[in-house]
Write a protein that binds this DNA or RNA. Structure first.
Length: 436
DNA sequence: GGACTCCCGACATTGAGCTA
DNA sequence: TAGCTCAATGTCGGGAGTCC
C-alpha cells in the first residue's frame, strides 16, 4: 500500500462513490516502487462488486485521466497478464493527447476533476506494442513485480521481488523467516496446483521419468519446503550434469532425488565446505564466475511456436531472445545462487578450491559506471545478471583487473581485462586440479 | 411511468499450454 | 493437429433502483 496513492485517491473530487471506491482500492494496491497490478478479479473482490462493474469504473477513471491502463503479456508465454494501472500522480503518467495538442501549454484545469479537459480516452490498445507487431508490450516481471497486499504465497512473491542484501557481502543476510504466513487459504489450493504443474514440468526432464512413480514423486515434492522445491527443480540440470560427468549411468528416481535433497550435492560437487559463501560476497562471486566459465549446460526447453518464428526470422530481436534464453537456462547453478540471494538465504557452500580467485575480486558500487559496464558485459555474453538493481546491496564483488582502472582507456577495456584475469586464474586452477 | 444510472451475468477475444 | 482449457480482459443486453 502507498499512503501517497491512497491520500491522492481520497483527495479526488466529483467522482461517484462506487468509482471512488474503485480508485481507492487501486491506490491501496499501489506500491511506490513497483506500481499497481491488481487483477480485475482481485479488484472486484476488494470493492465487493462484479468484475464488469469494475471495468466500467475503470473506464470512467481512465476517461477522467486519473488512471492509465497498460496491458502486458508474459515475456515467455505471451499470455495476458495483470494490467498495470498508472495513477495520475505517478511519474511517467501519460499526458492526454488533447493536452499535448494544446499548444504545449499546461491543460486547463477542469472544474470537475482538476485533470485536463478532454473526454477522449487515454487508453488506445492498438497503440501499445504487442508481440504481433514486433515490439514488446511486456512488463518485465523480473524488474517490475507486484508488491502489494498479496493473496499469493509469500514464496511466490519472494521469487519475483527478492530482497536487498547487506552491504559488502560480508554481512549476515537479514533473516527472513521461511515460515512467513501464507495469506489466504483459498490461495493455498491454487498454489498447490501451481506446484503440481511445476513438478510435472521438472519431472518430465528427469532421466528416469518414464519408469518413475508419479505418486511417489508428488509425495516427496510436497514433503519439501517451497524453497527446497524451487532449489530441487532449478538444480536438477546441474545434478544430472554432475552425475553424467562422473561417468555414472544409473540415476535414482525423481522421488529419491527429492527425498535425499540431492540438489544440495550438486552445489557441493567440487569440494564441499561448511563455510558459507555469503550472497554478493567474494566467495559467492567466485562460485558464480566459476560456473559462468563453463559452456551453457542447462536444459533449454523447446521454444514456443512464436519464439521459433522469432528466432528463425533472425535480426536483433532474435539475437536478444537467444541471449535471454541463454541467460535464463544456460547456467542453472548461477541462477540458483541469484534466487537464493534474492530470497535472503544465508549463502551457498563455499568452494575452498576457489580460494585463490578471491584476491581477484573487488568492490563495485551499485549503479556506478563500472557496475553498468559489468552489466553490459553480462548482456553481451548472454550471462544471467543478478536480478533487478533494487534487489542488490549497495556494493557487490566483481573481478578486478590487475592494473589500476586509470591505466585503461575505457571501463569496458578494464572489465574485459578483469574478466581475462579471472578466466586465466580459473583455467590455472583447473589445470592444477587435473594434474592432481 | 419514463429516463437515467448502476450493476450483473453472459459471451467474446487472445494466445499460450495441454491432451487425445 | 484439432479441440479443449486457462487467464485476463472487453463488450453488451437486461434487471433493479432512483429521480423527476
Amino acid at each position: 500500500m502507498s499512503h501517497r496513492a491512497t491520500n491522492w485517491a481520497v483527495e479526488q473530487r466529483s467522482l461517484k462513490p462506487a468509482t471512488k471506491i474503485v480508485l481507492w482500492h487501486l491506490a491501496d494496491r499501489h506500491n511506490p516502487d513497483h506500481g499497481c497490478f491488481p487483477s480485475q478479479r482481485q479488484l472486484a473482490e476488494d470493492c465487493e462488486m462484479s468484475r464488469s462493474s469494475i471495468n466500467n469504473h475503470l473506464t470512467i477513471l481512465e476517461e477522467r485521466g486519473l488512471v492509465h491502463r497498460v496491458q502486458s503479456r508474459n515475456e515467455k508465454t505471451y499470455q495476458q497478464e495483470n494490467t498495470r494501472y498508472l495513477l495520475a500522480f505517478e511519474d511517467g503518467f501519460p499526458v492526454k493527447r488533447s493536452v499535448c495538442q494544446n499548444g504545449g501549454k499546461p491543460p486547463k484545469p477542469c472544474p470537475e476533476i482538476g485533470h485536463g479537459n478532454s473526454a477522449e480516452p487515454v487508453s488506445k490498445n492498438a497503440e501499445i506494442p504487442c508481440p504481433k507487431n514486433g515490439q514488446s508490450r511486456v512488463q518485465n516481471l523480473d524488474t517490475n513485480p507486484v508488491r502489494e497486499p498479496v493473496r499469493e504465497p509469500v514464496s511466490e512473491r519472494a521469487r519475483a521481488s527478492g530482497g536487498a542484501q547487506t552491504g559488502d557481502g560480508a554481512g549476515e543476510c537479514a533473516a527472513r523467516s521461511e515460515n512467513e504466513p501464507m495469506d489466504a487459504p483459498e490461495a493455498e489450493t491454487v498454489t498447490r496446483d501451481t506446484w503440481k504443474r511445476r513438478l510435472k514440468k521438472a519431472h518430465k526432464d528427469w532421466p528416469t521419468f518414464v519408469s518413475d512413480s508419479e505418486d511417489a514423486a508428488e509425495k516427496e515434492w510436497f514433503a519439501l519446503a517451497e524453497a527446497d522445491r524451487e532449489k530441487a527443480a532449478s538444480l536438477m540440470a546441474v545434478y544430472v550434469h554432475e552425475v553424467k560427468a562422473s561417468g555414472r549411468k544409473m540415476f535414482c528416481t525423481f522421488a529419491v532425488y527429492l527425498r535425499e535433497k540431492l540438489s544440495e550435492k550438486a552445489l557441493r560437487s567440487s569440494g564441499a565446505s561448511s563455510v558459507l559463501a555469503r550472497p554478493y560476497g567474494k566467495a559467492w562471486g567466485a562460485l558464480r564466475f566459476a560456473d559462468l566459465m563453463r559452456e551453457p549446460y542447462g536444459h533449454f526447453p523447446p521454444p514456443t511456436r512464436y519464439l521459433q518464428q522469432l528466432l528463425a526470422a533472425g535480426g536483433e530481436m532474435a539475437e536478444a531472445e537467444r541471449r535471454r534464453r541463454t541467460a535464463e537456462y544456460g547456467w542453472p547453478k548461477v541462477n540458483t545462487l541469484h534466487l537464493d540471494a534474492r530470497n535472503r538465504h544465508k549463502g551457498a557452500p563455499a568452494d575452498p578450491e576457489l580460494a585463490e580467485l578471491l584476491q581477484a575480486f573487488d568492490k563495485v558500487a551499485k549503479g556506478s559506471a563500472l557496475y553498468l559496464a559489468w552489466k553490459a558485459l553480462h548482456e553481451r555474453r548472454g550471462w544471467p545478471w543478478f536480478g533487478a538493481d533494487r534487489d542488490l546491496p549497495d556494493w557487490i564483488y566483481m573481478p578486478a583487473p590487475s592494473d589500476p582502472f586509470e591505466n585503461y582507456e575505457s571501463l569496458d577495456e578494464a572489465v574485459n581485462a578483469a574478466l581475462a584475469r579471472i578466466e586465466n586464474a580459473h583455467a590455472e586452477l583447473q589445470k592444477n586440479e587435473a594434474a592432481e
